[in-house]
Amino acid sequence: MLDRINLKNILVLDIETVPQYAAYEELPEQWKELWKKKMARDIKEGLTPDGLYQRAGIYAEFGKIICICAGYFFENGSGLQFKVKAFYGDDEKKLLEEFNDTLNKSFSTDEHLLCGHNSKEFDFPYIARRCLINGLPIPYLLDNAGKKPWEVQLIDTMDMWKFGDYKSFTSLNLLAAVFGIESPKDDIDGSQVWSTYWIDKDLERIKNYCMKDVVTDAQLLLKFKGMELLKPENISFTN
């Protein structure tokens, strides 16, 4: 599996997102109404707009990116290495500009690929949408309008694991357990990002969690290629 893909051409990424406001009550009136319409089906089932607002981070129209972590493979005298860089902060436009600049400088040829887990459904379109909302150009690898399916340079480990089966979602944590990879959920998980950001104000903790997800997905790629897992000493991190 993935025999024809060169690991050195892959940038593995993950994003963390939160609602744009700490609570539903802080939304401008227009946006309260828009949120109610977005959640109309759930509201009919007895849930409330404010009770549902913690979900807002998963929608690019109502959320924002607070962290993008991206990692790449390379080799040195000690063998295969993996390095992860974090772009994070409260200023979404600034972190997007920094990420896009890195992407356009180092990963912008027809040989390069972006990879994530459930990223075709979430991370990739979310980044592209938030770029447009912030008045930024979409990076080359994410600007797929008009491309044929085989021209799109995006791969998704969850999509690969389906092997054509579209019945279910398989989490990164589950696949990590299946392949004997250390769990990235040893501190917080995705459901806790909202409170960790808006209540605890602990962006560093979210960044560390995001970095672990990237490493886990990179290890999963190696397993998909029938390769040995990276040792801790072959993984490095930078901000």
Rank of each mutant, 00 (worst) to 15 (best):
226 G>L: 12
146 G>R: 04
170 T>A: 10
214 V>K: 00
31 W>F: 11
18 V>A: 00
5 I>Q: 01
64 K>L: 01
100 N>R: 10
172 L>F: 03
74 F>P: 07
219 Q>A: 06
168 S>N: 13
213 D>Y: 03
29 E>P: 02
141 L>M: 06
103 L>W: 02
128 A>T: 12
202 D>W: 05
230 L>R: 07
84 V>I: 14
1 M>H: 12
129 R>Y: 15
93 K>N: 05
160 M>F: 12
76 N>M: 05
50 D>R: 08
25 E>S: 13
41 R>T: 15
238 T>E: 14
122 F>G: 04
90 D>S: 14
38 K>H: 14
117 H>Q: 12
56 A>C: 13
124 F>R: 08
21 Y>N: 08
212 K>D: 10
84 V>A: 00
205 R>D: 01
172 L>R: 03
162 K>D: 03
177 A>R: 15
186 D>N: 14
132 L>Y: 12
113 L>E: 05
221 L>M: 10
151 E>C: 09
213 D>W: 00
18 V>L: 02
148 K>L: 15
60 A>C: 11
193 V>T: 09
73 F>M: 10
119 S>F: 03
44 K>D: 13
32 K>T: 06
46 G>E: 07
112 H>P: 07
28 P>V: 08
186 D>F: 12
146 G>N: 03
74 F>K: 02
65 I>W: 00
131 C>P: 01
174 L>V: 14
205 R>V: 09
143 D>M: 10
